[in-house]
Every structure is written in C-alpha cells, then in structure tokens.
Amino acid sequence: MWIVVGLGNPGTRYATTRHNVGALALKRAAASWSIPLRQAGARMVGEGSIGSNRVLLAGPLGWMNESGPPLRALLNDYQISPDRLIVIHDDLDMEFGRLRLRRAGGSGGHNGLKSILQSLGTPEFCRLKIGIGRPAPGQDSADYVLEPFSDEETERLPDILDRAIRAVECVVAEGIEAAMNRFNPLASEA
C-alpha cells in the first residue's frame, strides 16, 4: 500500500492559499480516482486504488508546521514504511506550476517537511513539489504563502493539479525514477 499526503493547513481560511496546494492536489486526486475522503480526527483520509495499487490518501494532518507527529502515527496505524510515502507540498523556490519529484532530501526551508523529517527520522520518502513562485520584493514569504492564488494562477491551477495527479500515478505504477524522468524536466511541462 502507498500513502499519499497532501500538505496544507486545516479550515476554510487556508483552503485556497498557495501553502495548501498539496491539499488541493490531494482533493483533486481523490475525485479523479473516485476515492471518497472522510473526516478522521484532524485529517481527511480515504482508501482506494490507483490501477492495481492500493493507496491511502491523507491531508491536512493538522497545522502544516506540525505535520510530522500525526503523519508518523498514520504510518504506524497502517504499518506503512516511509519508502511507500508520497508527500505533495508547495515550494516557493520554484516557478509557479513547475513540478519536481525527489526521492529523498532535506526540508528546503519548508517547515512542514522539517516536522516530517524530524518525526520520521529519515529523509527517505518521495516528495512531489509544486512550485508557487516567489513573493514580490519586500513581501514577507509567510504572508505570501498564506495568500489565495491570483486570478491568473487560479486559472492555470487545474492543469497543474492534473499534472501532479499523473506524476503520483506514475510513481505508484512505474516507480520514482520513471516519474522523475517524465515530470521533472521543464520540457514535459509545456
């Protein structure tokens, strides 16, 4: 079984903010894969399949910066190893709409990932980064990530989320290497 987590903050106030693009991707994936999400404590979860592969979808797990402990508990509850985990999250160091898969690594300054790395005790899990772009000069990064998408970004968002869904499907069906080769290059995003 794979677990696919879309990072975000809970509540309607944050639902359409840049920081919640991981949670938005998860909701779109759940609809695309016909996996109903249900409330389970501080998170939404759903079980189903991508092709012949079983998956558990989860997100948000509480406040973004405290994602690690509830994610560790979820992995323990379902007895899933971190190497079967895909975390979808925002990345403000990448241009808006760019996707990048990584097999492992550090947090890149992302506090949600810092919490996950600390709680799991390993960097060995798949991340799907979705670029949200940089704030304007002089704008605070924390304010920027908690703003709603611009009208132009909102218009482009469905296509970006659909590409993210295809990237997750590729990881699950063909492995991380195949997915990285297909979705990381800029040419694949044209």
Rank of each mutant, 00 (worst) to 15 (best):
R127E: 08
L57R: 13
L128N: 07
L92F: 04
L75I: 12
G46K: 12
V87K: 08
G109E: 07
G108H: 02
R84Q: 11
R134L: 09
C126N: 14
E47L: 11
G51Y: 05
K114N: 10
Q139A: 14
I50M: 13
R102S: 14
S81A: 14
V87M: 05
I50K: 11
P135K: 15
T122P: 03
S115D: 01
G112L: 02
S67E: 07
N53Y: 05
G133S: 04
L61S: 08
P69I: 01
D93F: 01
D83E: 15
Q79A: 13
F96S: 11
L117N: 07
P70N: 02
Y78Q: 14
D91I: 04
L99K: 13
G133V: 00
N76C: 08
G133F: 00
Y78A: 14
D140R: 14
L120K: 01
L57W: 08
V87N: 07
E47V: 10
L75E: 15
V87L: 07
I86P: 03
Y78E: 14
I86K: 02
L61K: 07
S49N: 13
M64H: 04
G105K: 13
S67T: 04
H110I: 00
K114H: 03
K129D: 01
G106M: 06
G133E: 04
R98V: 09
N53E: 13
F96K: 13
E124S: 11
R134T: 10
N76M: 11
R72S: 12
G138H: 01
D93H: 08
I132A: 10
D90Q: 00
T122M: 01
E124W: 09
Q79L: 10
E124H: 14
M44F: 11
G138N: 05
L71F: 11
I132L: 08
A136H: 12
F125R: 10
G133N: 01
Q79C: 10
P60I: 13
R127C: 05
D140L: 05
G46L: 05
R84D: 02
P123L: 04
S119W: 02
E124D: 15
P60E: 15
C126H: 14
L85V: 01
G121K: 00
T122F: 00
L99H: 10
R100C: 11
G131H: 03
H89S: 08
I132G: 09
L74N: 08
P60W: 15
G48R: 12
A136R: 15
D77G: 05
K129E: 01
G121P: 01
L101T: 05
R127V: 03
I50C: 15
G108E: 04
S81I: 11
E66C: 11
G48C: 12
W63T: 10
N65A: 06
S115Q: 00
G97A: 05
M44I: 00
G138D: 02
V55N: 09
L75P: 14
R103F: 07
S115T: 02
R54F: 07
I116H: 03
P135L: 13
A104N: 13
N65W: 04
I132C: 07
N111E: 00
